[in-house]
């Protein structure tokens, strides 16, 4: 059977623990100040992306977010992982080493490791992995989403073509929220 996988915002029965709280989110309404704050917001974005994306992967015991390179986002994501789940899967935040061939749902490529983007995109093409980079235009190198900071605000670009190549189903909500959407 085909799995219909919709973020059921209206009727979700989930009663997850009270969040990472609103305070962080509200803080995020302010301009991005220091780097720590910026990564808290980016982590939050990544978490929110998961609600609007469907992965076509074999079932796995956890929702794996891989991080390439050293980044403050790791701490921020780990904090989210303690309080949130994706669906009913616990979130696992893993720093990826170059010889790691295991499967991830999300791979975050830090600024310093941008050069690995293309290689990663090839490696995970069709495996339904969401690759997120941090700078504009890197989507051409295979990232589906680019988290960018403009005017002290975090926004994102969405490359739907890259998403298709990656084997992801991305909801129109996300497309509506994105700054630019490549067909």
């Amino acid at each position: 059977m085909f799995f219909i996988f919709i973020s059921n915002a209206f009727y979700s029965g989930r009663k997850t623990a009270l969040v990472l709280s609103l305070t962080i989110l509200l803080m995020s309404m302010k301009p991005v100040g220091d780097a720590g704050n910026e990564y808290t917001i980016k982590a939050m974005f990544i978490y929110n992306f998961t609600k609007h994306i469907e992965w076509n992967q074999p079932p796995s015991p956890s929702f794996r977010i891989g991080i390439v390179g050293n980044s403050d986002i790791q701490g921020a994501l780990e904090l989210i992982a303690t309080q949130k789940k994706v669906g009913n899967l616990p979130i696992e935040v893993i720093k990826i080493t170059s010889d790691d061939n295991s499967l991830f749902q999300v791979i975050f490529v830090s600024k310093s490791q941008v050069q690995k983007l293309e290689e990663l995109a090839k490696k995970y093409a069709g495996k339904s992995v969401l690759i997120i980079s941090e700078e504009a235009k890197h989507s051409e190198q295979g990232a589906t989403i680019n988290l960018i900071t403009t005017d002290n605000k975090v926004r994102f670009e969405l490359n739907q073509t890259a998403g298709k190549v990656a084997g992801l189903k991305i909801s129109s909500t996300l497309a509506n929220l994105a700054m630019t959407v490549n067909p």
């Binding site: 009663k15 009270l18 609103l22 995020s28 509506n176 929220l177």
Partner: peptide, 30 residues
């Protein structure tokens, strides 16, 4: 947060609002 049309286009605001709805309003109301 979601006062104007533009607010709906701002991912940060939209996510925040979604989060409040999902993690606060729905479970609490239920």
């Amino acid at each position: 947060i979601l006062a104007t049309f533009d607010d709906y286009q701002d991912p940060m605001k939209k996510f925040s609002a979604d989060e409040i709805v999902e993690s606060q309003i729905i479970p609490k109301s239920t």
